[in-house]
Simulated scan of single mutants.
Amino acid sequence: MRIGFIGLGTMGGAAALNLIKGGHQLAVCDLDPDRANQHLELGASWADTPAMAAKGADIVFTMVFGPKQIEQVVRGENGLLSAMGEGQIWVDMTTNQPNLARELGLELAAKGAQAVDAPVSGAVDGARTGNMPQFAGGREETIERIRPVMELMGPMHYMGQSGSGSITKLASNQLWAIHATAMGEALVMAVKSGVELSRAWEALKIGASESWCMHHDAPSVFAGHYDPSFTLDLCQKDLGLIVEACDDAGTQAPATRLVCAQFEKARETYGGDKGELHVVKLEEDAAGVSLRMEGDWVPHWEK
């Protein structure tokens, strides 16, 4: 297929490479042209604007920072609304506001295009290896038609009507933030109480405490880099959307609101450009405990 791909950040860039390797012709677009070097070497073409990326495309994928950015990509000058039409499909993989995802989808539908909200999970290693889960909302027949393309990037889960993918991604990030905060509290408590860190980690990876976070993210704490592939600024952007979704749904979500405050404290303490797991370092520093551990902790974005 002819595909436009807008947004070549750490996740988007890797996902786009998998589409190229799957045999599709891509036109790529990003604010930083240097991010496209590897894609161009593999045969992709460069598009100066979102409209140019969409020209003649069967599918246009977008994966940008957040709601403001995706609104600009769609509604802005030389945006997708100026270029997309009958028969084309827009798949937005941005972590977005569900209501905005629906609004933009309706505006493109008025031009004859179809919209799918399919934000992603799985971290950078998932994007690199083609194991990046996608949570898709929209017309089921449209999503099933493009499933073979989407599954080049990772497993695709159909969630329901428009906006359902965005809600599911927010719920996924909601749980991750709670798990990451709880992981720090549990490991610090165990170590400060005299349990050897390696033994605590092995025990907490099984049974009732088992989580993807404990398996996948704890090594970033042990290595001391706290995973710079996703920053505290990005965490707070997502948590803001999550709290907004809780408010819209009329849920109390007390744990979520406490965790949001803890991430904000980490951002104020260490800086918004620091890795997401500095929320764990906050607990380490408060308790006077280090969770450094010797080991061959290969960063997940290099796997």
Results as ranks from 00 to 15, higher is better:
Met52Leu: 06
Ala16Lys: 03
Ala136Tyr: 02
Leu8Cys: 06
Arg128Leu: 15
Asn131Asp: 14
Gly122Ser: 03
Met153Cys: 06
Gly112His: 03
Ser172Phe: 15
Gly130Arg: 08
Lys274Glu: 13
Pro33Met: 08
Ala245Arg: 08
Ile178Val: 14
Ser45Met: 10
Leu19Ser: 00
Ala182Val: 13
Ala83His: 03
Asn173Met: 03
Thr168Asp: 07
Gly165Asp: 10
Met84Lys: 10
Gly275Val: 01
Met63Thr: 01
Leu106Pro: 01
Leu170Lys: 07
Cys29Ala: 11
Asp227Thr: 13
Pro299Val: 01
Gly66Cys: 11
His157Thr: 08
Gly194Asp: 09
Pro228Ser: 06
Ala16Asn: 01
Met153Asp: 05
Asp117Val: 10
Ala190Ile: 13
His157Asn: 04
Met159Trp: 00
Met93Asp: 01
Gly165Trp: 05
Glu141Asp: 12
Cys235Pro: 02
Ala203Asp: 09
Thr94Leu: 04
Leu81Thr: 06
Ala123Cys: 09
Val64Pro: 08
His216Ala: 14
Phe263Trp: 00
Gly7Lys: 03
Leu197Pro: 02
Glu210Gly: 13
Met150Gly: 02
Ile242Thr: 03
Leu40His: 04
Asp30Glu: 08
Tyr158Ser: 04
Leu19Gln: 02
Trp301Tyr: 15
Val74His: 00
Asp217Tyr: 15
Ala171Tyr: 14
Arg128Val: 15
Pro133Phe: 11
Gly154Asp: 07
Val195Met: 15
Lys265Tyr: 06
Leu234Met: 08
Thr94Cys: 03
Cys29Trp: 00
Asp34His: 10
Gly250Tyr: 07
Arg35Cys: 08
Met156Trp: 07
Glu294Ala: 04
Thr231Ala: 03
Trp90Gln: 11
Ala136Trp: 08
Gly207Arg: 13
Leu282Met: 01
Ala36Thr: 07
Gly12Phe: 00
Val64Phe: 11
Gly130Val: 11
Gln97Met: 12
Gly23Lys: 02
Lys205Ala: 09
Ala127Tyr: 13
Asp92Arg: 04
Val298Thr: 14
Ser166Ile: 01
Met93Pro: 08
Val280Leu: 12
Asp273Val: 15
Ile59Phe: 12
Asp296Leu: 11
Asp217Glu: 15
Ala53Phe: 13
Leu106Asn: 04
Glu276Asn: 11
Ala255Pro: 04
Asp58Met: 07
His24Met: 02
Lys274Pro: 02
Ile206Trp: 15
Leu241Gly: 10
Ala123Leu: 14
Glu302Met: 14
Ser162Asn: 11
Ala36Glu: 12
Ser193Asn: 08
Leu258Val: 04
Asp125Pro: 14
Ser166Ala: 14
Ala115Lys: 12
Trp90Val: 02
Met84Arg: 02
Ala14Ser: 12
Gly130Ile: 03
Ala51Glu: 02
Leu106Thr: 08
Thr10Ser: 13
Leu239Glu: 11
Glu71Arg: 01
Ala36Trp: 05
Asp233Glu: 07
Glu302Phe: 15
Ala218Ile: 15
Trp176Gly: 09
Trp201Arg: 11
Lys303Thr: 05
Gly87Leu: 02
Ala16His: 09
Met93Leu: 14
Gln174His: 15
Gly163Glu: 03
Gly105Met: 07
Met93Thr: 07
Trp201Leu: 13
Val289Ala: 00
